[in-house]
Design a protein around this nucleic acid. Sequence first.
DNA 1: TATTAGCACTCTATTTAATTGAGTGCTAAT
DNA 2: ATTAGCACTCAATTAAATAGAGTGCTAATA
Lengths: 343, 343
Amino acid sequence: MPLDDRKKKILYAVITDYIMTAEPIGSRTIARKYNIGLSSATIRNEMADLEDMGYLEQPHTSAGRIPSDKGYRFYVDSILQNYLNNDPPISHNIREEIIAEFDEIVKRYARILATITRHTTVAKMPKLNPDKIKRIQIIPVASNKMILLVVTDTGIVKNYLLNFCQSVERDIFEFLNNLLNDKIAGKSEKDISEFLERDLRQMLGEVAFIADELIKTILLSLKQLQETDIYADGTSHILDFPEYKDLAKAKHFFNLLDNKSLLNEVLEPERDFIDVRIGSENKFEEMRELSIIKTTYKINNSVVGTIGIIGPTRMDYRRLINEINMMTKELSNLLSSIYNDEI
Amino acid sequence: MPLDDRKKKILYAVITDYIMTAEPIGSRTIARKYNIGLSSATIRNEMADLEDMGYLEQPHTSAGRIPSDKGYRFYVDSILQNYLNNDPPISHNIREEIIAEFDEIVKRYARILATITRHTTVAKMPKLNPDKIKRIQIIPVASNKMILLVVTDTGIVKNYLLNFCQSVERDIFEFLNNLLNDKIAGKSEKDISEFLERDLRQMLGEVAFIADELIKTILLSLKQLQETDIYADGTSHILDFPEYKDLAKAKHFFNLLDNKSLLNEVLEPERDFIDVRIGSENKFEEMRELSIIKTTYKINNSVVGTIGIIGPTRMDYRRLINEINMMTKELSNLLSSIYNDEI
DNA sequence: TATTAGCACTCTATTTAATTGAGTGCTAAT
DNA sequence: ATTAGCACTCAATTAAATAGAGTGCTAATA
C-alpha cells in the first residue's frame, strides 16, 4: 500500500510542522496553515489512515498527531533521494582560518558544525596509520614487579607496570625480553594474539604464573594502539529543545556523551554516504529517543573518520543533512590537500 | 568582630542543613533539629545578626536563611584548618586496576573521582616535558603555498599549511629553510619569539610579505606545544542538584564545560594544597554561581597537573575535600612509581 | 540583662476548581 | 468522495483558596 499523493502531502505537512514546533498538530491547523485544498474533515480521515499505516501517532486521544519513526524515515528517504541528484551548494571557503594538525582540524570542524547547526556534534578520529609494535622492553623493578615498555613504529612509548604474585628470577626477565621481541616485534596483530593465546603459556614453563598478567597487558596495549579518540562539542545545544526540559531525559543525554566507548561504536562507519538513524533504528538502547546523522570524512578517498550530529528525532533533517555534507566535504578536501604528499 | 561560639554553632547548623536540603532554613527548624539549647526566638535574633555580618542571606522576607559565599568561606576555612592536622584516611589501594599510560591514568582517576563524589570532575594534563622544536622543514607546494613542518624533541610532527598573497620564488624557500633552522631549532621559547618579532621581517627583505603568516604560524606551534589537555567527566551529575532544574543554569554549566580554554585557566594551579573557590571568589564570571575544589597531582613532588571538582556553591565541602585529597594522593603515588626511573 | 513566649504579618508553594481550546470520531448532507 | 456539523475528550492554563514556614517586634520571665 503505497502512499498516494494526498497522503504524502499531509504527512510532509505534519512532519515539517512538528519539526518546527514540537507540538502535536491537528487536522484543522493543517487545513489552515498549508493550502492542501481539503477540508479539515477530509484531512482528519487521511490522518487516521496514516496513523493506521504507522506513519503518525497520537500522544493521547484528542491530541493532534505527531510523526512516528517510520514517518521520519519516509521523509528522510525522500530527502536523501532528492539530494543525490542536485549537488548541495558549497559554502564559502572556510579553509583559510584553519591551521593545525590532524586532530585539531577535525575538532575545529566539529566545533564549527556544532555552531552552525546548533546541535551537538561528535567526531571520531582514528589513528592515521594504525601503529605496529616495533620493540618491547622489559625492565625489572623488583623481584615481583616489572615495567613493560612498548615502543611503536611512530615512536610512541607506552609503559605498563606489572605485578606478579610470586617472585621471578632475574634471568627470567632476560629470557622474556628476548622471547617477546622475537615473537611480537613487527608482527601483525593477528600473529601476536595467536602467539599469546596459544604458545606463550607453555613456553614460560615454571613461570607460567606470570602469563595472565602479561597476556592481558600486551593485548591491552594492542587495543590501545588502535583506539580512537572521540570528541564532542556543542553539548549544551540539546537543552534548547523543549523536549529536553525534562531533566531525566537531559541527564540521559549527558550520560551518553560521557560514555566514550558507546559513542565510539555509534560512530562506527556503516555507510559511505550520509547515514541517518532515527530513534528506534539505533542499535543502542541509549539512543532510542535520539536521531543521529553521520557521515565519514576522507583523505584522498579513503575513510579516516566519522562525524555526526545528534539530536531529538524531530531534528530538521533537510537542513542538517545539507550542512553536515557541506562541512565534511570541506574537511575532506582540506585534509587531503594537507596530507596529500605526506613526507 | 569575631564570631562567638553560639553564632558559630548556628552558622554551622544552617550551612550543613542547607548543603543537604538546598532549602532555606528557619530559626524554628534549627531549634528543633539541632540541639543548640536555645529557643527559636533567640536563634532568630542571632540569625539576624549573622545576616547583618554577611554570613547569611535571605532569598526574600519571611523565607529562611541561606549561607552566603562568605558563610561558606568561613566554614571551609575551619574545615581546612582541622584537616591539616589529622591525616585523612587512605582508601584501599586501587592501584592494581590501573595499567595505562599517563593521560589514560589521569582520565581514569578523574572518572573514578566523578563516580564516588557524584560530581563533575575536570582534569588538566600538561605535557610531561614541554617540547622543544628540534627541526623545521619547509616544503613548497605551489608558488604561493608551503607546508611548514615542525619536528619536536619527542618526535611529534606538526604541519601547517601556509598561503601567501603573492608568489614566492623557489630559492626563497631554500633560504627560509636554512634561516629558520638556524634561528629556531633547539632554541628556547623566549629566543624564538624575540627573533621572530624583532629580526625576521628585515631579514626577509623583499619577501617580507610572508612574515605575518610565518610568525603567526610558528608562534601558534609554540603555543600548541605547551598546550594542555582538558578532560571532563561525570558532567551529568550537575543535573542531580535541584538548583539545576532551571534549564538556563544547566545550559550555562554545559557551555562552561565546552569552553576548554576557560577551563584551562580555571584549573591553573594557584596553591599547592587544596584550593577552594566559592562562587563569587572565582575569577571568571561564568563560575560565579559555582564552586570548585581543585588540587594538584605530582610526580616525585613536582606538580604535573590539576584535578578539580565542580558543583553548586552548597557542595559538601567536607566530604569532597576528603575524597579529592585521597584520590590525588593515590594518583601522585602511582604516577611517581611509574615514572620514577624514567628510561 | 539575656532569653523566651506570643502574636500579627508576609510571602511562597501547593492544592483545588473552573475554564479554555485544539483535537477527534461519527453521522448526515452535499 | 467530500464536507459540514456536533458531541465528546483531554491536557493545559488560569484563578482562587489554603497551608505553612518564616520573620520581627513586644512584653513577660528568669
